[in-house]
């Protein structure tokens, strides 16, 4: 995947908002369903598919595996001696398969964004006599700037890039529609806020 400095913010946001929400433990369990692995292999599988600019630290991998071991969701299938510390091969248990299945089939709770920062800013701008329309225009320009970046990345990217960027683009588009609608209603909102 290609990256530019400009995209770090976006990638980080999406890694935090989507990938980490998936929880690392369920992701590692999912990888283990394909067959037993070392922690090293799990880290690389994760980084390759979901890491983007936030690869997992080895410490995160081993602490997660340790928790899964305690909960009986994975087991150590074998030990391989080497020049350094012994390498454990982890395998998923029946309980682990049940756990990851349950997680996969449970829908995520949609975010409602009922009290967004943008709405608060617009109301405060009106209350304090500032130009709310200008604020909305500035936000719109920033959203479109990011959409252009994502579109450029998507155009030259692989399928994973395209899907990640599409997710971001659709959310930004929804924000933009809200900005447009709010701009069209700014006079009415101003009257209500000041009354």
């Amino acid at each position: 995947m290609r990256h530019t400095t400009h995209l770090l913010y976006t990638l980080n946001v999406y890694t935090v908002c989507i990938v980490l929400r998936m929880t690392i433990s369920h992701t590692l369990l999912g990888f283990l369903e394909s067959g037993p692995c070392h922690g090293y292999d799990l880290k690389h599988s994760y980084d390759q598919r979901f890491g983007n600019d936030r690869p997992l630290h080895y410490g995160q991998v081993y602490s997660t595996l340790s928790r899964l071991l305690k909960r009986g969701l994975v087991e150590v299938e074998g030990m391989e001696p080497g020049g350094g510390p012994e390498r454990k091969r982890y395998a998923i248990t029946e309980a682990g398969v049940t756990d990851v299945t349950q997680w996969l089939v449970t829908p995520e709770k949609p975010d409602s964004y009922l009290q967004s920062t943008l709405y608060t800013k617009v109301v405060l701008a009106i209350l304090t006599g500032r130009d709310a329309a200008k604020l909305l225009d500035a936000q719109r320009a920033e959203h479109l700037r990011l959409m252009r970046e994502l579109t450029r990345r998507k155009t030259g990217g692989d399928l994973a890039d395209q899907l990640i960027c599409d997710h971001a683009l659709f959310h930004l588009e929804a924000d933009l529609r809200w900005l447009e609608l709010t701009t069209a209603r700014i006079d009415r909102l101003s009257a209500e806020v000041r009354s």
């Binding site: 400009h6 225009d137 719109r140 320009a141 959203h143 479109l144 700037r145 959409m147 252009r148 970046e149 994502l150 579109t151 683009l169 659709f170 930004l172 588009e173 933009l176 529609r177 701009t183």
Partner: peptide, 25 residues
Amino acid sequence: PRVAAYADREIVVRDGHTRSMGAAA
């Protein structure tokens, strides 16, 4: 907006007036 994102920059027309929204980064 997803189509506009293919452009280098955008102009917004409101009530017959144009507003430039800035150049691409």
